[in-house]
């Protein structure tokens, strides 16, 4: 079964997934008109900084099983539809209980187009509408670096494993340098430089 898989090493913090997510969950689903909508659409995926922005991390709902948010919801507003945890805004009373128990802080409270009188829990819906139409989730579609994938987890694990095994083989058989095990790219170079800057801010314990 396919699901959204995050490859954190590939996230470069461009936040395009946040924008794509906002647009997808706007009324018009159009970037130009969505910015004029009330209430404004908001992302359900959050690109968070690691230490001093040397890293970034796309944080979104993991659709836990069992899901603490679903269990604690006192009105039954949070429910499950084919392994996706969803919120029915009309049943949400905005009690914040789900945010209290969500271990990843991926539930936010926002105005919903359907509910005007209160803020309701808003979270990743796995782009369930898109999936039903045979599309992939918006965040996956927009990510050009391969940090957010929509695929079979077992397949990805297998590919990664094979890739690594190949490299180990190269090191052993052909005497290649051990460096090949560690992928280096221009983003790593930048990260190293940024880390040095960050070090100037930290008074190291002597």
């Amino acid at each position: 079964m396919k699901s959204v898989i995050i490859i954190p090493d590939r996230c470069i913090g461009c936040k395009q997934c946040e924008i794509a997510c906002s647009v997808e969950h706007s009324k018009s689903k159009n970037i130009y008109s969505s910015v004029f909508e009330t209430p404004k659409s908001a992302p359900r995926i959050f690109v968070l900084p690691g230490d001093h922005s040397c890293f970034s991390f796309p944080n979104k709902c993991r659709h836990c099983d069992p899901a603490p948010c679903l269990m604690i919801c006192p009105t039954g507003a949070i429910y499950k539809d084919s392994s996706i945890i969803l919120v029915d805004p009309t049943r949400c009373i905005g009690c914040r209980m789900c945010a209290m128990v969500c271990p990843f802080y991926v539930i936010r409270y926002r105005e919903s187009p359907d509910i005007v009188e209160r803020y309701v829990a808003t979270k990743c819906d796995g782009c369930i509408d898109r999936i039903k139409k045979g599309n992939i989730p918006a965040c996956v579609e927009t990510c050009k670096t391969g940090a957010i994938l929509f695929d079979d987890l077992n397949k990805i694990l297998k590919e990664k494993g094979l890739n690594f095994a190949k490299k180990v083989f190269l090191v052993q058989k052909e005497g290649k340098k051990i460096d090949v095990l560690q992928e280096k790219n221009c983003y790593n170079m930048l990260q190293e430089l940024k880390e040095k800057l960050y070090r100037t801010m930290v008074v190291e314990d002597e």
Binding site: F46, V47, L48, P49, D51, F55, S56, F57, F104, Y105
Partner: peptide, 13 residues
Amino acid sequence: ENFGEGLLYRSIL
């Protein structure tokens, strides 16, 4: 402001 999953997950520290 910036504490959160990102920092916990990806920290050089």
